[in-house]
């Protein structure tokens, strides 16, 4: 497992959770906010973790994702800080 954290926001239009279609898989590449990174990593979502966007909240505003055995919901403004890769970074 490779850990890569990128705390600066200067990546060119990186894909994040809010860009996923429902049912789409992706791998967490990095986090662009330290607080959110710490919280999500403590909850078991690590760089390299595979996630699926399960669904969006009925009235918008939040995403429901699944990673391994975790089911986690996060607001869009938090989901934007989870940078994704379509494959595991080597």
């Amino acid at each position: 497992m490779v850990f890569r954290i990128n705390l600066n926001n200067s990546l060119s239009t990186p894909k994040n959770i809010t860009h996923l279609n429902i049912g789409e898989h992706a791998f967490i590449a990095a986090f662009s906010n330290g607080f959110i990174a710490c919280k999500l990593m403590a909850m078991g979502l690590l760089p390299g973790s595979e996630i699926i966007l399960v669904r969006k909240a009925p009235f918008g505003g939040a995403c429901y994702i699944r990673a391994k055995q975790h089911y986690v919901v996060l607001r869009n403004k938090e989901a934007e800080h989870v940078i994704l890769d379509s494959e595991v970074s080597k």
């Binding site: 959110i36 919280k39 999500l40 909850m43 939040a62 429901y64 055995q69 975790h70 089911y71 986690v72 919901v73 996060l74 607001r75 938090e78």
Partner: peptide, 8 residues
Amino acid sequence: FLMLELPE
């Protein structure tokens, strides 16, 4: 923040 775990 939300970042909430949904228990099974």
